[in-house]
């Protein structure tokens, strides 16, 4: 079972790799045939990943949100599903090439450190906890989308300012479209993260009492919340549209990744699922 799960986890990594390769080849030579092929590969990877998660769930006896590294792969799965929905709805395939490296990163970190038989603290079996995690993952998915869109915006805007129109001008959708996408994603993410945060806080009150307010992860999330609030406010009040908003969004997401991986690994006492 262990070996099988390990193999499967790397198989997931591999299919994402192949999918990314297809998206890159689509980006280099934008043809309808390649777009269909890329889309087929995303669907295949989601299927393989779902299988992996299903096996993992039966192994652990609960849904895999109980420690940092199982959570990472669950996140990756959820992100890809959200991405797939967006791709199908907006019929915009160019985003994949920016999106899949992040998924690959999440999956490889998860694969390297995952422990297939970790026991679980009874605190974490509560319904509240699962709802809390669901909110947080959805919020992260939204922020990821916004970050990708922002990177696209920065690349395209820079190319247009430089007045040498190249591959990004040819391949990417319009600035207004990317900007709207990023903006909507941040707004939705903000709403979700606020709910998740409040729920976690309420849950924490019941379990840990007092001391936990200085938990590094909580501080980290609070900081990223602040960054996204800055995004929200400056955009509305100071007209930080487009380029500047994109930079704020990228900063916010970098901080999120940092807090998610580094802080939980090295600092956290409470938020480490023990």
């Amino acid at each position: 079972m262990r070996e099988f799960l390990t193999t499967l986890s790397w198989a997931v990594f591999l299919v994402y790799g192949v999918t990314l390769w297809h998206y890159i080849s689509f980006f280099k030579n934008k043809t309808a045939a390649k777009a269909t092929l890329s889309r087929r590969w995303v669907i295949i990877s989601v299927a393989v990943h779902s299988l992996y998660l299903a096996v993992l769930t039966t192994r652990l006896g609960h849904i895999p949100v109980s420690d940092t590294f199982t959570l990472l792969t669950a996140c990756a799965w959820f992100f890809v599903v959200v991405y797939l929905i967006i791709e199908l709805r907006l019929k915009e395939v160019t985003m994949g090439v920016f999106f899949l490296p992040i998924i690959l990163l999440l999956q490889v970190v998860s694969n390297l450190f995952i422990n297939f038989d970790k026991t679980l603290s009874p605190v974490l079996l509560e319904l509240f906890f699962e709802v809390h995690v669901a909110f947080m993952i959805s919020a992260y998915a939204a922020f990821t989308i916004s970050c990708i869109a922002s990177i696209m915006y920065i690349l395209l805007a820079r190319e247009m300012q430089s007045k040498k129109l190249g591959i990004f001008f040819e391949r990417l959708p319009s600035l207004q479209f990317i900007d709207n996408l990023s903006n909507h994603a941040v707004n939705i993410g903000l709403l979700l993260v606020m709910f998740g945060f409040a729920l976690g806080y309420y849950m924490g009150l019941g379990v840990w009492e007092g001391t936990w307010a200085f938990d590094p992860k909580m501080i980290a999330v609070a900081v990223s919340l602040l960054i996204y609030i800055v995004h929200f406010v400056t955009r509305r009040s100071f007209g930080w549209q487009g380029h500047r908003a994109a930079i704020v969004s990228v900063v916010g997401f970098s901080w999120l990744l940092f807090s998610f991986i580094i802080v939980t690994t090295f600092f956290s006492k409470i938020h480490n699922f023990q």
Partner: peptide
């Protein structure tokens, strides 16, 4: 031709370049 090539780069007059630029910015 549609499947194998990229016909987008056909902005070869000033007016079409302007229109392409506008579309790239505003959608």
């Amino acid at each position: 031709i549609r499947l194998e090539s990229n016909l987008q780069k056909n902005a070869i007059t000033p007016d079409s370049v302007v229109s392409e630029l506008a579309k790239k910015i505003f959608g």
